[in-house]
Design a protein around this nucleic acid. Structure first.
Lengths: 140, 140
DNA sequence: ATTTGTGCAAATCGTTTGCATCTGA
DNA sequence: TCAGATGCAAACGATTTGCACAAAT
């Protein structure tokens, strides 16, 4: 059920890192594969660290943090702070919003076109909007 | 420019605590006064702690955290996590949203009626919406 | 060769907790 | 009286940092 050419996924990820101006080191490549191999994901540093360990990818937690921040600064990821206890990194960097399951801490994307904000007051002091986040908090 | 009866503010705050089922102790009263005396505010635990110190109100940081959480659980405050580094507590517990000044970390309220969300997808799994937060992040 | 990452362990920061002591009803 | 609060210092968990070593260009 998996592609027969195991390096196919690598090539894309490798190019993505290069294009972003990030050296494709063994660790970054492995982490990027975990992050971008399949559809969009929301991961914490700890989660990614554990996934890496599970796949016997040798990375330190500090390197996971470094990679996540490097990726974020190059717009390969978006950082989300919903719960003050820890940050999530979202592989979907496009315009979209989130459902947040309060009890489990899980996040789910809401496509931008599914939410329409009909009115917004002008930012005070003529400030520019960097982005608008809509978080729909769910009880269940 | 101030009311002539200095205890007037106290009485209200005292009642507010009592009504919420919280013992109006010296510390809670002092903190509540700092929080609710004038219009709506967004404060961090550290900020409130410093204000208290500045006014020679003797409270420990742990008590500030306790009080903030007690107030939050009784709906006198709302907790906001925007920046993973620390939490803010908002004295406005009604339906409203926020401007967030990324550089300064300051928050400003947006009245609920100034934002209209025209469409929202149904929550997955029939979950109930606990609330919808709109955060408008500002560059400047 | 040089620059850029990486690993590790120690440091930091916000927040929470345990427990002995106080205080409000 | 006595349940509920407080203070303090120690414990915590997430994140960061400093520095010697390793790998990429």
């Amino acid at each position: 059920m998996r592609p027969k050419i195991p390096s196919a996924g690598n090539v894309t990820v490798l190019e993505r890192l290069r294009d972003a101006g990030l050296r494709p080191t063994r660790q970054r490549l492995a982490l990027a594969k975990l992050l971008f191999a399949r559809g969009h994901r929301h991961v914490s540093a700890e989660q990614l660290f554990n996934e890496a360990k599970a796949q016997r990818v040798d990375v330190s937690l500090a390197t996971v943090y470094n990679a996540l921040h490097d990726f974020t600064s190059k717009d390969l990821l978006r950082e989300i702070s919903i719960d003050s206890s820890s940050s999530y990194f979202d592989t979907n960097t496009g315009d979209h919003h989130h459902f947040y399951f309060e009890q489990s801490g899980r996040l789910e994307d809401i496509a931008a076109h599914q939410v329409s904000i009909a009115a917004l007051p002008a930012p005070p002091g003529g400030a520019k909007i960097s982005r608008v986040d809509v978080i729909v908090r769910l009880k269940g």
